[in-house]
C-alpha cells in the first residue's frame, strides 16, 4: 500500500485545522447528488379507517378505554395508559377548547404556505387533543398572536366542501362565538 487510507488523510485534515477553529480544508468538499423519490400507500387499519370514514360524513368519532374511561380522538386501538384494547365508540361534538397553538412562520417543502397556525383542540368530552389548523390569528410578527386568539378560546370545526376520508376533511377550526 503506497497511498494513505482515506481515514489517515482525514486525520491529517482534522489535525491541520488546528485549535483556532478555522476550517483549513484544502478544497471544497466533493459531493454527488443522490435522489430518493419514493411514494407509499399507508394502510390505516380498522380504527383509523373508521375515524376517516366518520370525517367524510362530518362526524368526529372517538373511542374509549373501558378500564380508565379516557376518550381518544383520533381513536386508537389500545389505551396507552392501561395497555388495554379500547372498547366503546362514540361521536363527539365538533366543538371544543383551543388549548395551545403555534404560528408557523416558516414551513417546509410540500407543506402548507406559511404563515399558518396549528393548534391542539380539546373537543368537548375528549381526553386527548386533536391537532388542527386554526384561523382567527393576527399574522403580524411584531405582536403576540395570542392577543387576537388567546389560549382557551372556544372553537368549532369547519368542514371541507369535498371530503374524501382525510384529516383535512376538517378544513380548520374557527372561534365559536
Amino acid at each position: 500500500m503506497t497511498s494513505p487510507t482515506a481515514s489517515q488523510a482525514g486525520e491529517a485534515i482534522i489535525r491541520r485545522s488546528g485549535s483556532d477553529g478555522v476550517a483549513a480544508s484544502p478544497s471544497r468538499p466533493a459531493t454527488q447528488e443522490v435522489n430518493w423519490n419514493l411514494r407509499y400507500d399507508i394502510h390505516l387499519g380498522a380504527t383509523w379507517s373508521r375515524f376517516m370514514d366518520g370525517l367524510r360524513q362530518r362526524k368526529l368519532l372517538a373511542n374509549s378505554c373501558a378500564s380508565c374511561s379516557r376518550v381518544f380522538v383520533p381513536p386508537q386501538a389500545y389505551c396507552e395508559s392501561c395497555f388495554e384494547p379500547t372498547a366503546e365508540w362514540l361521536e363527539l361534538p365538533a366543538e371544543g377548547t383551543l388549548e395551545v397553538y403555534t404560528v408557523a412562520w416558516h414551513g417546509f417543502t410540500g407543506g402548507p404556505t406559511p404563515p399558518y397556525a396549528i393548534g391542539g383542540i380539546r373537543l368537548d368530552g375528549a381526553s386527548t387533543l386533536l391537532m388542527h389548523h386554526v384561523v382567527g390569528v393576527d399574522f403580524d410578527s411584531e405582536s403576540d398572536p395570542k392577543d387576537a386568539l388567546p389560549f382557551g378560546t372556544r372553537v368549532r370545526a369547519v368542514w371541507a366542501e369535498e371530503r374524501v376520508g382525510h384529516v383535512l376533511d376538517i378544513s380548520h377550526f374557527e372561534p365559536a362565538s
Binding site: 417543502t109 399558518y116 389548523h133 384529516v167
Partner: peptide
C-alpha cells in the same frame, strides 16, 4: 427539514404542516 419532518405523525398530524420545530414550539407556547 423535509427528512426530519417525516418524523411527525403521518396521516393525522403531518398533513397539517407540522414539522420538527413546529412540534417543539407547542411546548414553548404552552
Amino acid at each position: 427539514q423535509s427528512a426530519i419532518n417525516t418524523n411527525s405523525p403521518m396521516i393525522i398530524e403531518q398533513p397539517l404542516g407540522m414539522g420538527a420545530y413546529h412540534m417543539g414550539a407547542f411546548a414553548a407556547c404552552a
